[in-house]
Amino acid sequence: MKVLVAVKRVIDYNVKVRVKPDNTGVDLANVKMAMNPFCEIAVEEAVRLKEKGVASEIVVVSIGPKACQEQIRTALALGADRGIHIETDEEVQSLEAAKLLKAVVEKEEPKLVILGKQSIDSDNNQTGQMLAALTGMGQGTFASEVVVDGEKVNVTREVDGGLMTVALNLPAVVTTDLRLNEPRYASLPNIMKAKKKPLDAMSPADLGVEIAPRLSTLKVEAPASRQAGIKVADVAELVDKLKNEAKVI
C-alpha cells in the first residue's frame, strides 16, 4: 500500500526562541531550521511499515518556501521514495494546509496518511484532523502504536486518562505522538542516494487551492518571565518556607 507522509520545516527544537523587538513575530533570521520532531516520527513509522512489507511506496510532501526541499531530502534519505513540494512563500495556516494535502491525497490515493500531531512552532494540533474530515477519513491521533490489519488499521492513542485503541477503515489518517518510535539518523550513503530520488514541485494554484488566511496575528510578545527565587540550604528550610512564607501547604 502507498503511504503519504507530510513533513514541516520548523525552527530546530533546541533553539532558544526570541520574539522580534517590533512584536510582529519570532526571529527566524539565521536560526537553525529542521524537520518538526513529530514529522520525523511520522517518516520513521512509514519506513518501518515499508521494512515490514506493509507499505510499498512512501511519498513525502511538504508545504512552504523553497528551503522545505531540505526536509523533503532528509525524509528521502531516511527511506521515503518520492517527494512533493508545494511551494509558497505565504503563511499557510492549518485549514489551507489540510486543503492542499487533500488535493495531494486525491491525486496519490494513499491508503494511509501519517502526520505529526502538532508542529512545535504554531503548536496548533489541527492539520491531520482537518485533512481527515475533508477527505472523509477516520483518524488515529496522538498514536503510540499503529498496526495495519487487512483493510483496517488499529491505532493506540495517548489520551488524558491513559491509552485508547481505535480501529479505522483504510484509507485513514494517523498523527504521531512522541512514543510511537525513535527516529533513526540518515546515513551518509543514503543522503547521497536521496539527492537522486524524484522530487516534484508545484504551487497551491496547481492544486486549485487559494491561500487566504482566516487568522491574523496582531502581535507576538515574550511571555511574562518568571524570576528565579532562592536556594534553600536544606529540606527543613524548604518545608518552613512552603508553610510560613508561600503558605501553600
Binding site: V19, V26, D121, D123, L215, T217, K219, V220, A222, P223
Partner: peptide
C-alpha cells in the same frame, strides 16, 4: 495563545 512551547504569546484575530 501561546506558541513555540510558550516561548512566545500571540494575539490572533479570527475573521470567520
Amino acid at each position: 495563545r501561546p506558541i513555540y512551547a510558550g516561548n512566545a504569546i500571540a494575539t490572533v484575530k479570527a475573521s470567520d
